[in-house]
Write a protein that binds this DNA or RNA. Sequence first.
DNA 1: AGATAAATACCCTGCAACGGGTATTTTTTT
DNA 2: AAAAAAATACCCGTTGCAGGGTATTTATCT
Lengths: 208, 208
Amino acid sequence: MITVAIAEDHQALVDGINLLLEYEENISIIGMANDGEALLEIVRKKQPQIVLTDIKMPKIDGIAATKLIKKEFPNIKVIAFTMFDQEELVSQMIAAGASGYLLKNSPLQEVINAIEAVAFGNTFFDKAIDLSFTSEGVTTTTKRTILSKSEREILRLIGQGKTTSEIATSRFTAVSTVEKHRKNMIRKLGLSGKGELLRYALEKKYNF
Amino acid sequence: MITVAIAEDHQALVDGINLLLEYEENISIIGMANDGEALLEIVRKKQPQIVLTDIKMPKIDGIAATKLIKKEFPNIKVIAFTMFDQEELVSQMIAAGASGYLLKNSPLQEVINAIEAVAFGNTFFDKAIDLSFTSEGVTTTTKRTILSKSEREILRLIGQGKTTSEIATSRFTAVSTVEKHRKNMIRKLGLSGKGELLRYALEKKYNF
DNA sequence: AGATAAATACCCTGCAACGGGTATTTTTTT
DNA sequence: AAAAAAATACCCGTTGCAGGGTATTTATCT
């Protein structure tokens, strides 16, 4: 019997998965949560073998939740179940310790396949996911382009719609400094073009 | 027997609804589509009594699809099933002729309730929907700030990260035209500032 | 203590996006 | 057929963001 906990803020989808697994003899859902905090509670109490989690969630996002789970219970396998197939998110989930990654626009049957594959010790990544970028760096994960503290703060402000000069004022630094951070981030993240950094900031924001 | 057609681009959710309705004796799903175009085909061929449709969909969105369906088949009832609870969208769906509006973060059981209510001739709106704005204007709906067809198309392309000149090229129009549409949208939507239109486009897209 | 990374701040260039007009043609609605 | 709305295209000017440098101070990590 495989025990599973689900975290997902779209109740309709949770219900759907429940219905699907109701007739699966060897899979049992032992807990459901609508946010990351509730998920952690369930995990601590019931220690499922598999956690199926959304990335974009209230309170604690899926990436942070995964890190915490893997830290406390390295044996629990985590599968991401999300709408986003951005490389960044996939790689962050892998870095956090996820064993699988499912997209919501794939058939529900895939959920069963993924749960069984991961329970068996394999990894399971949706076929739509481009894993090319991991080929060289799966083991060395945390070497990836990581933003510095100031950069992340500025990125957050960009995501809130602040302009460069507003950010400079609120941080008591020069406009040129903020601009420099912007450029460095663009370079680090491999972006190009006018709106791309804002786009990136927004994708991260909802995002999780 | 109530006949239903579903349009929804998240296959997982379609599968979930299918599972749910499998054991409902008096509801039968006679067609499924992943985009608006396919939905219209199904509707024309099979003429279901109820159409359950997402709003954000490829090719033809739920609002446009609803208008077309209600124009050709006024007796077919349309229920919106979406993640968005924006006033704007709700009122557009009502204007388009929808009889119900469900949010994806409500229990799946609600789908059955809505289908049955609407099939019976009632309307069904998710309790999370704020309908206060309709009190004065249900009949006169179409007075709201609504983007035109070209504007929406351009907004979609903006959301995809296309620049003005790329959009102009792909639409075989002048750059100045696209710029004009941008400005008009900014005015209509009450926005201001460089990235705001992109931000708006992205917020609508993921909408969520 | 020495090396490395981060944060700070400035230079210059170019262009895409905004903000404000006006005007013509096409489509849609009445 | 007339009126209204949408789509087309152009004008002007301003500014913020990006792309390319360089350089100094402050943390941080061996």
